[in-house]
Design a protein around this nucleic acid. Structure first.
Lengths: 217, 217, 217, 217
DNA sequence: ACGAACGGGACGCCCCGTTCTT
DNA sequence: AAGAACGGGGCGTCCCGTTCGT
């Protein structure tokens, strides 16, 4: 920090105080939740003065919203739309999100904050609506293309898959610190495909699941 | 309190300060979570002096553990074992727990606290292990009796159903304050039965779901 | 304690709850002082319910005064009046009190409380007046008998010896936990005798000091 | 405080919040001791918000150590080394410290805290070691120069004089609020000089005592 | 613009000393 | 003799401005 008194030619590794703070905040939020997170601890972890923190995020709530926004961006960025096999694309996205949940503090924190009801209602519920909406779209395509066959509507399906994934991730966190998240997500997909995959596609999609979270994983 | 200065013949509704406190604490924990709950608020809500509260629960953590314990007791009490149709019994239990989640503050709070990672690890993870264990047993019977047919092991199934229910309940809470919890649980069961029910039992079990969470629900 | 549910014929070692409490209180007062002593800790240490404690001592102040009174009694009981050599008697008493200060929690606590100014002013200053008064009497006799020769009045002498002993004891406590109290008291007497002993008695009295706190001590 | 919104030319009497707090704390510590001193009372007396106080002294212990440090500095600053007559210098220092004990709250509080055993052990015992060490040095010189004659070693003498003074001061405090501290210190010196002063210097040194704490005192 | 020191109240948890009832 | 109830702070510290220096 002191070395920056003379702003040098190419401060390598300089990622901007803002992001530095955001990551530190995410780590604390993920660790102990919103209410128990102290701004002082965030500043300490970010190696930043409290005044500096206050300059970028005037309030603790702003800090949380910043984390949630960033998490939304990162999460949705992972969803790749593949018209060929929408269900396979969904499986791939779930794997990538599971990976993020294991590695990216901002995503971890964002999810946790999104589930703490209360002050984030706005950002939070819109997050779920958005997510479910996107998945419903995928299911529409998948059903339309005959990849899935079910008497459930796409809305019912999407509205159940998102909570399913949420629960799997959350209980994995509580039980094992997300160590065995991948197999749990795989089981989820096996249940879902057994229930909804068209017979013609079932074997292939189960293969995708096995490959994605596979024996190697 | 004042009315008790003359201990009357039949102090109806006197449930003991301890339970009074437990309920008040549960309401607060459910509303804002552990960290944001203030002991003063609990005492106020329970209409009890802070010293009284401290006598029964020396610490905020003790308060939370008390709530979790009570919730465990109440939750498991709901599970009725019906040898005739274990799956139907499970569906019934899920309905009853869903009802508790809508009405019983202690159960609501207990679940919420169980998902807040950290200091409750002990009580919490044992809670999930216990719950999953019980459900695995039911699935063993159900598969053995031919009611369910699946290539998933009972362990996989139980370990996936519990998170499924947890997620459904949680997202329902965030999205609608659990107003539409019943239909969401019904969808869950339709997915699960479609995936695992033996053809000979499928229609009947779906009927149980419809009746349980049914049009009347 | 449990064994006393049936009050037996000869509860050996039964010293009365009152004294039990007094000792426990003294230990705590000696350890941390009046203000920092908690009544709960005293009750715990005395293995007595708080209600019981309150029955014997309605107030924390009463507890402290009880300790101080008992200490006064025990302290003054040690002073033996020996007309043959009043100074030697004084030396002996100082040794005995020094021993008490090392072993008797009530005396330790009483002294400590007596020096904590404030609420005990009454009991405390009377304690010093009484003590100094007694010693002045001894010095009167000693000077009258020609054992001591000094241009200091007995009042000056007594009023200086008591603080001297107090300081020696106190600093010994702070510096070494009273481990080397005896030699320090011996030095005190050597100073005092060098200043006040009549030449004819000096050697004998110094011998008394050496014997009392002596090489064996 | 309000007057400082416009930082004026000559903020007379502005001594810094830190010192302001230190003095207020000393007054409280002196009045009721460490344990019974409330931080709120200190803040109130210093006319400072509790947050401000916490900024300068994060803990009550830090506050006490701050007072003790300051007292050490002020006390040792009074000791003037006069090679001509070391004993006279010591007498003078004792007078000055006695004056401080009557007037300077920080010195009063520091002494009191130093005698409250327990958490201050570190700062406290070093205080006594330092003090005794300094006085032993003086006695070495005094004995070497023939001003004092005694069979006591300088260590014994120094290790006895400091407690003597401590006791005199303390009992004076308890008995009379230190009103008659000066005569008591004078008596102390008369005893000490009678015991240790070389005959050739005795009259002169007693004269110094009389002049210092003298008839005018 | 940015960083840092300083100041300010407001509670939060703990627990303390007491009283009241059994 | 004991258990239960009771308010009242104590300490810590948190989150937030504001004012300096750079």
């Amino acid at each position: 920090v002191r070395a920056r008194t003379v702003p040098p030619v190419r401060d390598t590794g300089h990622v901007g105080k803002r992001e530095q703070i955001l990551v530190a905040a995410a780590e604390e939020f993920d660790r102990v939740g919103f209410a128990a997170t102290s701004i002082a601890a965030v500043a300490r972890r970010a190696d930043v003065a409290q005044g500096t923190l206050h300059f970028h995020f005037p309030t603790k709530l702003a800090l949380a919203l910043g984390v949630i926004d960033e998490q939304n961006a990162r999460t949705f960025a992972e969803v790749s739309h593949d018209a060929a096999s929408p269900t396979a694309a969904l499986i791939g996205a779930s794997k990538q999100i599971a990976d993020l949940l294991r590695t990216d503090p901002i995503v971890r924190a964002g999810i946790r904050l999104s589930l703490e009801r209360g002050e984030f209602s706005g950002a939070t519920s819109s997050f779920y609506e958005q997510w479910i909406g996107g998945i419903v779209d995928v299911f529409c395509v998948a059903i339309g293309s005959g990849e899935l066959e079910t008497d459930l509507t796409p809305e019912e399906l999407g509205g159940s898959v998102v909570p399913y994934f949420t629960g799997v991730q959350l209980v994995a966190e509580v039980r094992s610190g997300r160590a065995d998240l991948d197999p749990a997500v795989a089981v989820m997909w096996r249940v879902l495909l057994q229930a909804t995959a068209a017979p013609a596609h079932r074997a292939r999609l189960l293969g995708v699941v096995a490959d994605t979270f596979g024996a190697a994983g």
